[in-house]
């Protein structure tokens, strides 16, 4: 009876509305015999309650249990993550907080501006510049325009290249370090939340005395 197998792959993170009814089709990709696929996809896994908070983990074991209750003859084969994170947002989709975004932009703008000026003051950049010009041209007493303009261009160019923006056409699919760092950060947060949620469910199962 090879056709009684359900292949499942859970998504990592799903945005849901408060009070939503979560079906298996919402949180997983399903591959199964067409006889079951529809029924399994509509299988209700969880109803969001206000006390669930804004992040909720659903474990693969929970899902397997529900599928077996639906039809004990089914075998479940799983791939990928053994859990899925549900994030509750009012529109069912994460929207940026625009006011905070403007504040963050200004923060980075003024902050990085001050940081570069701090750096210049710290290393006595004007003196160094005049010295370099003197060493290279033999004349000390000129305003170092010739140094300062390429230097300013270089700062911007260096940043752009680090952000992987200039050679985008060539390195098309390569993400930039910022994107990688953002991804790693999210990954770490997810990992932490999942570990916490596992601890919570274990506590629930053991009862309050344990």
């Amino acid at each position: 009876m090879g056709d009684g197998i359900v292949y499942l792959r859970l998504r990592r993170r799903v945005d849901v509305m408060p009070g939503a009814i979560i079906t298996l089709g919402d949180i997983a990709s399903i591959e199964a015999d067409s006889r079951y696929e529809d029924r399994i996809g509509k299988l209700v896994i969880w109803k969001m309650r206000p006390e669930d908070g804004n992040l909720l983990m659903i474990d693969m074991l929970q899902i397997v249990r529900l599928i077996r209750r639906l039809d004990p003859s089914l075998t479940v084969e799983t791939f990928g993550e053994p859990h899925v994170l549900l994030e509750v947002t009012s529109e069912g989709k994460v929207k940026p907080r625009y006011l905070l975004l403007v504040a963050a932009w200004l923060l980075l703008f003024f902050g990085s501006g001050m940081a570069i000026m701090n750096f210049h003051a710290d290393v006595d950049m004007p003196v160094v510049q005049r010295r370099i010009v003197e060493l290279l041209t033999g004349r000390p007493d000129r305003h170092a325009w010739l140094f300062e303009v390429p230097y300013s261009l270089g700062v911007g160019l260096g940043m752009l290249i680090f952000f992987n923006r200039v050679f985008r056409k060539r390195l098309n699919d390569e993400p930039n370090p910022l994107e990688v760092e953002m991804f790693m950060y999210q990954q770490n947060v997810n990992h932490y939340v999942i570990t916490q949620e596992y601890a919570k469910t274990r506590q629930r199962e053991d009862g309050p005395d344990a």
Partner: peptide, 27 residues
């Protein structure tokens, strides 16, 4: 951290532009 705070996922260009404008402008 700022991305998480503002929930502006996958919008790294916004943050990059802020850094770039700040550094070039003040420089």
């Amino acid at each position: 951290r700022l991305v998480q705070l503002t929930r502006a996922y996958r919008r790294s260009a916004i943050f990059e532009s802020a850094l770039l404008a700040g550094v070039i402008g003040f420089n």
